[in-house]
């Protein structure tokens, strides 16, 4: 029993290898392969080829010698990176903001999706869904403007209300803790509605008969959510969590660049904004490439370990 499928496999494999492009299966699928080509080219040209440029992290890059002929300097820029207070602080800030983003931002769309799923009136559900995913389409420049009108010291809506209740104005945007809260909050406000869509899709694939039988067995709403809904969307949650962990070292440039101001830079300067300000403004291409490479490397390690962890629970992505 066990031998037969293996034997069949070995019989077929060399035949297939001989001339796969001549088989009927290949010829039938030529249109599909053709459609694959642009995608492959996209990744080769825009994702893989630029990685060659990473060598400048180990070189003293200058315009004249170009990427390939600039002199090698080994680990010099990584040494600078890990000896300087500023760069260490920036790496730490990046990690700090993205962990907070993950902790608060990740569960939000799940909760929203489950809550929306329980709404019985279709028109209400549709309406709420539209309203909460609308902010996704606003640019960060606009959101930063909204944040400023809400939280500035003079003329900010929140401080005006505080003033009416007799409170002193609070410099929300200029204190590290409140700035971080605003940063995380604005990110959640903007993206949670849109991210909920994928969970809603997963929820619709759960067999309604499960709820019916659970209801007959006397399970309340919360029980049903805990034992049917959550396990039903578990693969989706884990998939998105692994992807989310992979992005842990990235803080979206647009968001942080538009929201930050000099007083909170100590906590708000992240790798992407530093690369922009120092790498491009001051032409420190090699130093900032080293930083970007480090960022990607940590990201890779995190994805692999998150996946390894998930595989232990039979939910691995690859």
């Amino acid at each position: 029993m066990k031998i037969t499928p293996a034997a069949v496999g070995t019989d077929q494999a060399p035949a297939a290898k001989e001339a796969f492009y001549q088989t009927k299966r290949f010829r039938q699928n030529i249109p599909l392969f053709a459609m694959l080509i642009p995608g492959v080219l996209y990744y080769l040209i825009f994702r893989y080829a630029p990685m060659g440029g990473l060598v400048i992290a180990f070189k003293d890059y200058n315009f004249h010698d170009g990427i390939w002929s600039s002199p090698w300097v080994g680990w010099k820029y990584f040494e600078i990176l890990f000896q300087s207070n500023v760069t260490l602080q920036i790496i730490w800030n990046t990690l700090n903001l993205s962990v907070l983003n993950l902790v608060f931002g990740f569960p939000a769309p799940i909760i929203i999706a489950i809550a929306l799923n329980e709404v019985r009136k279709t028109w209400l559900k549709r309406w709420i869904q539209t309203v909460i995913y609308l902010p996704h389409f606003l640019s960060w420049v606009i959101v930063a403007g909204i944040v400023l009108t809400l939280f500035s010291i003079e003329g900010g809506t929140v401080n005006k209300l505080l003033g009416q209740w007799g409170g002193e104005p609070v410099p929300f945007l200029y204190r590290a803790d409140s700035w971080i809260a605003i940063f995380i909050g604005s990110g959640m406000w903007k993206e949670m509605g849109f991210s909920a869509i994928i969970y809603l899709a997963a929820l619709s694939s759960i067999d309604p008969s499960l709820y019916e039988s659970a209801g007959m067995d006397g399970a309340g709403k919360l029980r049903q959510i805990w034992h049917i809904t959550l396990p039903g969307i578990r693969p989706t949650i884990i998939l998105l969590l692994i992807l989310g962990v992979g992005r842990l070292m990235e803080v979206g440039f647009d968001q942080v660049y538009n929201l930050q101001n000099p007083t909170v830079l100590e906590k708000a300067e992240v790798i992407s904004t530093y690369v922009y300000k120092v790498g491009l403004q001051q032409a420190q291409f090699s130093l900032t490439t080293a930083m970007g490479l480090f960022e990607s490397f940590v990201g890779l390690v995190l994805v692999l370990s998150a996946n390894a962890l998930a595989r232990k629970f039979d939910q691995g992505l690859f």
Partner: peptide, 22 residues
């Protein structure tokens, strides 16, 4: 020295901004 200067200058400017608002 440009790298050193850039990094310290950034740190110091942040400190000054905090000194004004802190």
């Amino acid at each position: 020295l440009v790298v050193i200067n850039t990094n310290i200058d950034k740190e110091i400017q942040d400190i000054y901004a905090k000194g004004i608002i802190g």
